[in-house]
C-alpha cells in the first residue's frame, strides 16, 4: 500500500536529514583548536532519556559543591534562589530557600538612596563572586571564570564534557610546555586551562553522608548544572509525552478518516 510505505520513509528521512545536517554543524570544540582530545568519559545520568528525571539528592549535593567550591570563582547569574524551591527545583522548602539566600550579602540601595549590603532574598539571582568582569579576571590570573548557568548547553558534549573537565586534570605529559598559571586537562581544547583543579577526593563533607570521591562530586555538580541550564526539563518531557500520545492517537484517527473519505475514489 502506498501510504504505508511513503510515510514512514518520509518521517525517517526528515529525522535522518536533520541529524546528518546537525552533526557537522557543530565541530567539536577540541577539533576546532586543532588538538586531539580523547573521547568523552561515558557516564550515565538519572536525567537521561525521555522519562529521565533529576535525582533530587544528587541535585542537593551538587548545589552544595557549587556553593562551597565553584561559587568562589563562578557566577550563575541566570538562576534565582526561588528556583531551588519545590518539586521542580531541588526539593527545598520555601523556608529552607529563604535561609539559603540569607547566607549571601547583596549590594542594594536603601530608602535614603545610600548603598548598602543586605542579605539576599529568594527572588534574587545567585550572588556573583566578583562585582564585575575585570575583578574576576584580576583574581584569576587574567582568565575570566565563565558564568555556569548555561554551561551544559553552551559546550559540545554537554554534561559529559563538563564531567570530563572536572575529572580530566593530569600532570602535563613530558615535553608539553605549560604556560604560566595553566593546568593540564585532557578534555579542554588545547589542554591548557586557567582553572586550577577544583575537585579532589573529600573536597566537601556531604550533608547526607555520601562518600565524597572525585567522581561522585563531579557527577553531582554536573547533575546540578544540567538542571540549572534548563530548570524546565522535567516539565518539558512530561508535556512532550502527553502531546506525542495525543498526536499518535490523532494521527491514527485521521488516517482512518482519510481512508474512508477516499474509499469511493479510484486513485
Amino acid at each position: 500500500m502506498r501510504p504505508r510505505r511513503v510515510l514512514p520513509a518520509l518521517l525517517a528521512g526528515a529525522v535522518i536529514a536533520a541529524a546528518v545536517l546537525a552533526q557537522p554543524a557543530r565541530p567539536a570544540t577540541a577539533q576546532a583548536a586543532g588538538e586531539e582530545a580523547p573521547p568523552l568519559p561515558d557516564v550515565s545520568w538519572s536525567f537521561e532519556g525521555p522519562f529521565g528525571t533529576f535525582d533530587r539528592a544528587a541535585l542537593q549535593r551538587g548545589f552544595q559543591i557549587y556553593t562551597e567550591i565553584c561559587s568562589a570563582c563562578h557566577s550563575m547569574n541566570l538562576v534565582t534562589y526561588d528556583d531551588l524551591a519545590g518539586p521542580s527545583g531541588l526539593g527545598y522548602t520555601e523556608a529552607e530557600v529563604k535561609a539559603i539566600a540569607a547566607q549571601k550579602q547583596i549590594a542594594d540601595i536603601d530608602k535614603n538612596g545610600q548603598p548598602i549590603q543586605r542579605p539576599a532574598r529568594p527572588s534574587d539571582h545567585f550572588v556573583a563572586p566578583f562585582p564585575n568582569e575585570s575583578a574576576a579576571r584580576t583574581a584569576n590570573n587574567g582568565a575570566v571564570p565563565p558564568d555556569l548557568s548555561d554551561m551544559i548547553k553552551a559546550r559540545d558534549g554537554g554534561a559529559r564534557y563538563v564531567y570530563g573537565i572536572l575529572t580530566g586534570f593530569r600532570d602535563a605529559p613530558k615535553g608539553v610546555e605549560m604556560r604560566s598559571g595553566m593546568n593540564y586537562n585532557l578534555y579542554f581544547p588545547g589542554h591548557q586551562i586557567a582553572m586550577p583543579q577544583p575537585l579532589q577526593d573529600n573536597s566537601v563533607q556531604y550533608a547526607d553522608g555520601t562518600k565524597a570521591t572525585l567522581d561522585q562530586e563531579a557527577h553531582d555538580v554536573v547533575t546540578f548544572l544540567t538542571w540549572a541550564a534548563d530548570p524546565t526539563t522535567e516539565e518539558r518531557k512530561r508535556t512532550g509525552a502527553k502531546v506525542i500520545l495525543f498526536l499518535l492517537a490523532m494521527t491514527g484517527v485521521l488516517y482512518g478518516a482519510k481512508r474512508r473519505v477516499w474509499s469511493d475514489i479510484e486513485h
Binding site: 510515510l7 518521517l11 526528515a14 529525522v15 536533520a18 525521555p50 518539558r236 518531557k237 508535556t239 512532550g240 509525552a241 502531546v243 506525542i244 498526536l247 499518535l248 490523532m250 494521527t251 485521521l254 488516517y255 478518516a257 482519510k258 473519505v261 477516499w262 475514489i265
Partner: peptide, 23 residues
C-alpha cells in the same frame, strides 16, 4: 479529499516536530 489527507499528513509531521521540540 485533500483536507483529510493534509490533516493526516500534518498530524504525522507534528509527531516528528514534537519529538525534537520536547526531547
Amino acid at each position: 479529499y485533500y483536507t483529510y489527507k493534509d490533516m493526516f499528513g500534518l498530524s504525522a509531521f507534528l509527531i516528528v516536530f514534537a519529538i525534537v521540540v520536547f526531547y
